[in-house]
Design a protein around this nucleic acid. Structure first.
Lengths: 360, 360
DNA sequence: CTGAAAGCGCTAACAA
DNA sequence: TTGTTAGCGCTTTCAG
């Protein structure tokens, strides 16, 4: 099996023309006499000729494919998450792990590639790897690519950005070539915090998130700004080191202890850096007998579908995820078409979405 | 910009070795003395060398990429669908169009490619095109591919299947090379129909679906079998020609008229071939003042997330969509590793999911 | 309008 | 262990 594929040579021989004519018949129809073209196309069809993209890419210097690099761990969702699911409804169980942020952004990327007639290559960074290898592999295959933040060491990205258009999502740099697409993390988190302060008259708020991560750090900044604007003290972020769900239990215990202690010092609300950690936290709190929003308010960030599917509906900040992805591709294609275009750094607005987890 | 990428020649020159040694240093480390290898790697790093996948693919004859071909119309969801959304909650509105069947299957495909260390190429068939071009383009880029049913004319698929492993999803053929992954459409639809007949004691049921489509035809067969088993007459399928939502309104009117007519002949339940059309039908009925399940029962098929997100929760049959995708990739990789392996045709089981739309 | 031929960058015999 | 070299299949000048 896997019979040899027909090549231009085969087609040329069969049609009684040269390989150049075969190539032109496909790519530059106007440069070939109609009857010759017919003959070539017929021969190609009879031989089931399929041009090799490798050969074409090599000769032409472009692949007409774009790449997307994602975290492997996000691809293969940790089993712990599913294990934590209620287990009664297979469809809802699945909603916990799909679609997440990366999936929705990916959908926008796919859509936009299709619209522009580009193929899309998707690669995942293996858990525990630096990402440099997966990145190089992908970069060798495409004309331009979009990477999720923290999949690839910045220096590697920077170097590559001199050779091809690259968009890094949800991150920023002063690199003269790297493009970025972000959302208004700070404004969104500030508005959310302000909602808890103004509408719900809460005063003792906590922030849960990993401030080592660029966008989560920005969200913390928004949280802090809202508190400072009211002369309230800003607590340190409660960090969930690795995977959200894993550490949510620990944070829930911390909160539970303080909730059980002096009334006056007990936290009244938690602003979470992501929906994932917010949902995990609500679960963990509920396991400890603490009700949200009854005993404490919780808010999220991202606006993933799961935030609407589980109860209480999460009060959160929605990112225009699909738009993020399609915008990234637009930037890449612009730069492919106009190589001298300057780098771009676009920030998209976010939308607060009020649910019940804040007490509304 | 887009400075020229470094090549093996550059690296070889810099490291003072031949290009063969550079190649070996990367692909066959054991065939190169460690210190030579070090030197090559260092040179490669200094030059930011990234191997060209095109050149490699051409020379080696494999790309280490797999392809997935989807319907373009499924990628760029028709706007009509979003227009029909309630418009109050941006997150829920989106749940109407994402994730659908294709997205969940695609997730399984992605996951499995990543697990096996393959890149994934995604292409969409432009609306109105035969798919043959998009298929050829994709086939020229990958080692093997999975296509959704009806994206590509069967003869084209058949011819290509002689050259490379191909899985066609949700379809069947007697082709000696083409692989297929399907689900138990007939059994699932039969069980669903039986549920309406036995639990709800309904007798006058309708089927809505496009029997021109392979899997929907099978579902109709299951519906018919359940009715026949009870000596009930089998009505013709109410077909929604093109896009589900577009025609749901027409079908809803048909049902409404009959519901308004003689009690004894009015339909009591509708078994839909897909969740999409079921949800659209419920919407359309509701616009006409008909309540589901109060006035009439409606069931779906697929188990997309939207079936759980909207009210009434749809009684439906869930396909193991992610598994479908990953199984397809497993079959491809098996056949890439063992070219003489026979074609495979695997049918996966389905799970009834009881919601409220049937009256439960 | 068509043909000849020189690469594109890498791999893998085969030689050394 | 390393170097030489002949392709892989296509595009694209340059001649005719």
């Amino acid at each position: 099996m896997t019979a040899d594929r027909a090549t231009v040579y085969d087609v040329a021989a069969r049609a009684g023309v040269s390989t150049a004519t075969v190539s032109f018949a496909f790519r530059r129809p106007e440069k070939v006499r109609p009857e010759t073209r017919e003959r070539v196309l017929a021969a190609a069809h009879e031989l089931a000729y399929v041009p090799s993209a490798s050969a074409r890419g090599l000769a032409h210097g472009r692949t007409r494919a774009l790449g997307m690099l994602v975290h492997g761990v996000l691809l293969q969702r940790p089993e712990g998450v599913l294990a934590a699911a209620t287990g009664t409804d297979p469809i809802l169980d699945r909603a916990r792990v799909f679609p997440l942020y990366v999936d929705e952004v990916g959908h926008g990327v796919e859509l936009c590639c299709h619209r522009h007639g580009y193929s899309l290559l998707v690669n995942g960074v293996a858990a525990g790897s630096s990402g440099a290898d997966a990145f190089a592999d992908l970069a060798g295959r495409v004309d331009a690519l979009v990477v999720f933040r923290d999949t690839v060491p910045r220096p590697v990205l920077r170097t590559m950005a001199e050779r091809m258009p690259i968009v890094e999502l949800a991150a920023a740099s002063r690199d003269p070539r790297l493009c970025h697409v972000t959302v208004d993390d700070t404004g969104g988190a500030r508005a959310m915090t302000e909602h808890l302060l103004a509408e719900h008259r809460l005063r003792r708020l906590e922030f849960v998130g990993d401030v080592a991560v660029w966008d989560q750090r920005r969200r913390f900044a928004g949280f802090a700004a809202a508190l400072r604007a009211r002369d309230l003290p800003v607590p340190a972020a409660l960090s969930h080191g690795g995977h959200a769900r894993h550490h949510a239990a620990r944070i829930a215990e911390n909160l539970a202890q303080r909730l059980a202690g002096t009334r006056r010092r007990a936290p009244q609300g938690v602003v979470c850096a992501t929906d994932e950690v917010a949902l995990a936290l609500i679960d963990a709190l509920s396991h400890l007998g603490i009700d949200v929003p009854g005993d404490i308010a919780v808010t999220g960030f991202d606006g993933i579908l799961a935030s609407r599917v589980f109860r209480p509906a999460l009060t959160t900040v929605r990112q225009p995820m699909e738009r993020l992805g399609s915008l990234a591709i637009d930037l890449l294609i612009e730069r492919l078409d106009h190589p001298r275009l300057a780098r771009a750094a676009v920030q998209l607005p976010v939308t607060p979405v009020i649910g019940n987890s804040c007490g509304c």
